[in-house]
């Protein structure tokens, strides 16, 4: 029996889809059987980020309305041997085509066959959000170091805390620009975590490579050299229960002395 994790944020454009794609990929790299579910019906794009757009035959609405079996709609990611699948959203209908109970049933069914179900939630707190959280066991809230994103994350966390079947949500802070945090022009990690007062599961630096990779339909997690990739892989390992310290945001190559200082906890 696997577990279903919903990736949500409230605000749009903070990186839910990118996070879903990369966490799914990183979990598959760890040898887990993963199914990505895009619940953004009408505005799907997880398939594009994954580079699987042209393989879609059936979609989530087809499954729910009984036009096909689940396995017919699942798109297999060729880069992995039978580990990573995508259930794409429909593009022609809208969010009201699906009810939360149907969604829960579908996720429960998927949990039989997969270790992890990663549910990509649409922006907003309406029907689409309700569908996305209906079948989830865990939740990850994605935010960026902007006041508006943090405000919406706060709202979403409040809503998630009311859901009885979901564990307390975890936080990912995405698109961190180190120089702006240092100069105080952006909220810093501590500020955001104390404000939202939930557990931090990872931070991801703002990295042009992420956008490049998404545009090529190759999740950045596949590229082992990028900082963002390491961040996503670390988050995946934390999901698997390993305890890994947060990656330092500073640029590399500061010398042995600063590392020593850090080791002894001197600032």
């Amino acid at each position: 029996m696997g577990e279903a994790i919903v990736i949500t944020s409230g605000k749009g454009g903070v990186g839910k889809t990118t996070t879903s794609a990369n966490l799914g990929t990183a979990l598959a790299l760890q040898g887990k059987k993963v199914c990505l579910v895009d619940t953004d019906i009408g505005l799907r794009n997880l398939d594009v980020v994954m580079g699987l757009e042209n393989r879609i035959i059936y979609d989530l609405v087809d499954v729910i309305q009984g036009r096909c079996k689940i396995h017919q709609a699942l798109v297999k990611d060729k880069r992995f041997e039978d580990l990573l699948y995508l259930l794409p959203a429909a593009q022609t209908t809208d969010k009201s085509a699906v009810q939360p109970e149907q969604m829960k049933e579908l996720i429960d069914q998927l949990k039989q066959d997969y270790d992890y179900i990663i549910i990509d939630c649409p922006a907003g707190i309406e029907q689409g959000y309700k569908n996305a959280v209906a079948g989830a066991d865990k939740a990850i809230v994605v935010t960026t170091p902007e006041v508006s994103a943090v405000r919406d994350a706060d709202r979403i966390i409040g809503l998630l805390e009311k859901e009885e079947n979901i564990e307390p949500p975890k936080l990912i802070i995405n698109r961190i620009r180190n120089h702006m945090m240092k100069s105080g022009d952006m909220l810093d990690v501590d500020e955001i975590t104390t404000h939202l007062s939930i557990d931090l599961i990872g931070i991801v630096a703002d990295d042009d490579e992420v956008i490049k990779a998404s545009n090529h339909g190759e999740p950045i997690a596949l590229n082992p050299n990028s900082k963002a990739s390491i961040a996503y892989r670390n988050i995946a390992r934390r999901i698997l229960g390993e305890s890994i310290p947060l990656q330092p945001l500073e640029e590399n190559g500061k010398g042995v002395f600063s590392k020593l200082k850090k080791f002894f906890g001197v600032r």
Partner: peptide, 25 residues
């Protein structure tokens, strides 16, 4: 508890809140 954005906490007497009231709450 935390009183988060969009939440309203109302009590009939005095309120002692252990937690924060976030913006929008």
């Amino acid at each position: 508890r935390m009183v988060r954005s969009g939440q309203i906490l109302e009590v009939p007497g005095d309120l002692l809140l252990i937690g924060d009231v976030n913006p929008g709450g």
